Simulated assay, not measured.
Amino acid sequence: MAENNPTLRRRRLGGRLRELRKQAGLTVEQAAEVLLCTPSKISRMENAQRGASQRDVRDLCAAYGISDEDLIDQLMTLAREIRKPGLKHEHGDLGNDALYTYMELEAGASSITEFQTACFPGLLQTEDYARALIRGLLPRMADDVLERRVAARMARQPAVLERPKPPRYWAFIDEAVLHRRVGGTEIMRAQLEHALVIAEKRHVTLQVVPFDKGAYMGAGSPFVYLEMEEGVGSHVVYIEILVRNEYLERSDDLDVHREAIDQIRATALDPRASLECIAQMMRTYMN
C-alpha cells in the first residue's frame, strides 16, 4: 500500500519545496511572483493540498538557485509520480474520497494513536464486525460499495500492522465499545477475541477507559493521531464525523490532542488490566 501512495509523495515534495524556498530566503509571495501565480498556489503545494507539476518544480528550482541536477531530478520524479493512480484505482469507489487520503497517511505513519468511544478501531476489526458497523452507520450505502469498503478495511490491517517496519500502534477504547453489540452476540464475541489476539503484537497496545472513571478529556471526541515518518510533513490528527472528515496539522491542534492522549492514557486501565477486562466481557457473550 505504501508504494501506491500519491499522498505521501505529495507531502514529501511539498515539504522539500518549502525547505528550499526558505533556504533561498524567499517568501511565499516572492515565489508566487516568479511562477506568475497566486501565493495560495504556492502554499497549497507546500502543504500538500495540491500536487506540484514538473513545470512548477523546474521553475521553482530555478528561482531558488538550485543547480544540483540529482536533487532536481529527484523532485521532478516525485512530481511525475504524484500523477500515478492511487488507492482509488486499487480499491474502487468507497463512497468517500477522504478515506483514500487517510489510508495513504496511515501507510506512512511511524506511530498511530487512536481513541474510539463507540466502536473498535478499524485496524482491530473483524470482517463481520466491520460489515455490520458500516451498514449500521450508513444504512443507505449500496451493497457493492459496502463490500469494497469492508475489503479495503481488511487490507489495511496486514498492510499497516504486519509490514516489515510496522508503526507503533496505541489504541484506546471507551468501555462503551465493549457493550455495544454491533452485529449481534456471535460477531461481538469473535470481535473481542480478535482484538485480544492483535493486542499481543509487540508494537500494539490496547487500553480500555472504564465507566467508573466518569468524565475525562477527549470523551465524546474520537480521533486518530498520526506521527508521520521523516520527510513526509508534520504530524496529523484525523477526525471523522457523520458529514465530513477533518485533518488537523496546526501546532495548537496537535498540542491539544497530545494532551488528550496523555490524559486518556492516565485514565485508562493499564494494558494488562485492559486485556483482562476485554476477556471478561468476551465470556459474557459466550453465555
Rank of each mutant, 00 (worst) to 15 (best):
L137F: 05
L137Q: 12
L137E: 10
L137I: 10
L137K: 01
L137N: 06
L137C: 08
L138W: 11
L138F: 13
P139Y: 12
P139R: 13
P139E: 13
R140L: 14
R140P: 00
M141H: 01
M141F: 05
M141Y: 02
M141W: 03
A142Q: 15
A142S: 13
A142G: 11
A142M: 11
A142T: 04
D143S: 13
D143R: 11
D144H: 13
D144V: 13
V145N: 03
V145R: 05
L146K: 01
L146W: 05
E147L: 14
R148G: 10
R148W: 08
R148N: 12
R148P: 05
R149M: 11
R149T: 05
V150H: 00
A151C: 05
A151H: 11
A151K: 13
A151I: 04
A151D: 15
A151M: 10
A152L: 06
A152S: 14
A152V: 08
A152G: 07
R153W: 06
R153H: 10
A155G: 09
A155M: 10
A155P: 00
A155R: 13
A155N: 11
R156V: 12
R156N: 06
R156A: 08
Q157M: 13
Q157C: 09
Q157R: 12
Q157K: 10
P158A: 02
A159W: 12
A159E: 14
V160I: 15
V160N: 00
V160T: 14
L161V: 05
L161S: 05
L161K: 05
L161C: 07
E162R: 14
E162P: 03
E162M: 14
R163F: 09
R163A: 13
P164I: 06
P164N: 09
K165T: 15
K165Y: 12
K165L: 13
P166H: 06
P166Y: 10
P166L: 06
P167K: 03
R168F: 14
R168E: 15
R168M: 14
Y169M: 10
Y169F: 15
Y169R: 01
Y169S: 03
Y169P: 01
Y169V: 15
Y169W: 15
W170E: 07
W170N: 01
W170Q: 06
A171P: 03
A171K: 01
A171Y: 03
A171G: 06
A171I: 08
A171T: 05
A171F: 05
I173N: 02
I173F: 04
I173C: 09
I173K: 02
D174V: 11
D174I: 10
E175N: 10
E175Y: 09
E175F: 07
E175H: 12
A176W: 06
A176H: 08
A176D: 08
V177T: 10
L178S: 02
L178Y: 05
H179G: 01
R180M: 10
R180Y: 11
R181E: 15
R181V: 13
V182G: 00
V182T: 14
V182M: 09
V182I: 15
G183H: 04
G184S: 06
G184H: 02
G184T: 08
G184F: 05
T185A: 11
T185W: 01
E186M: 05
E186F: 01
E186N: 06
E186H: 03
I187K: 00
I187S: 00
M188K: 01
R189E: 14
A190W: 00
Q191E: 13
Q191D: 04
L192C: 03
L192N: 02
L192Q: 02
E193M: 04
H194A: 09
